Computed example of a mutant assay.
Amino acid sequence: MRWITYGPADRAGLVVDDLVHGLDEPLLDLLGDLGAAAGRARSAPAETLPLAAADLRAPIPQPPSVRDFLSFEEHARNASAAFGRSVNPVWYEQPVFYFSNPAAIRGPHDDVPVSPGSARFDYEVEVAAVVGRPGSDLTPSEAEDRIAGYTILVDWSARDVQRQESGAGLGPAKGKDGATSLGPFLVTPDELADRRAGNGYALRMSASVNGTAHGGGSWSDLHWSFGQMLAYASRGTRLRPGDVVGSGTVGTGCLLELSSLHGEDAYPWLRPGDEVTVEVERLGAVRARITPAPAVVPLT
Rank of each mutant, 00 (worst) to 15 (best):
A9E: 10
D18H: 04
D18G: 10
E25Y: 06
P26M: 10
L30G: 03
L30C: 03
A36H: 05
G39I: 03
R42Y: 06
A44Y: 09
E47S: 15
L49W: 08
A52R: 12
A53V: 05
R57T: 10
R57Y: 06
A58F: 07
A58Q: 04
I60C: 02
I60V: 12
P61V: 01
P64T: 01
S65G: 08
N78H: 09
A82H: 06
R85V: 14
N88E: 15
W91D: 04
F97W: 11
Y98E: 12
F99D: 09
N101E: 14
A104I: 10
I105Q: 06
G107Q: 01
P108H: 09
P108D: 00
D111C: 08
V112E: 11
P113W: 03
A119L: 15
A119H: 15
Y123V: 02
E126F: 03
V127D: 01
V130E: 07
V131T: 05
L138S: 09
L138K: 13
E142G: 02
E144Q: 13
E144H: 12
D145G: 15
D145T: 10
G149A: 01
I152W: 07
I152M: 07
S157P: 00
V161Y: 04
R163K: 15
Q164M: 11
E165K: 00
G171E: 11
G171L: 14
D177P: 05
A179L: 00
T180F: 05
T180V: 11
F185Y: 06
T188M: 02
P189K: 08
E191D: 07
A193E: 15
G200D: 06
A202I: 10
M205A: 07
S206C: 04
S208V: 11
G215D: 11
D221Q: 05
F226H: 10
F226D: 01
Q228D: 13
S234R: 13
T237S: 12
R238D: 08
G242C: 07
D243Y: 08
V244P: 02
G246E: 08
T249A: 14
G253D: 07
G253P: 00
E257I: 03
S260Q: 15
L261G: 13
D265F: 11
A266W: 10
W269Q: 03
L270S: 05
R271P: 01
P272T: 07
T277P: 12
G284K: 04
V286G: 06
I290S: 03
A293S: 08
P294D: 02
V296T: 10
P298G: 04
L299N: 13
L299P: 04
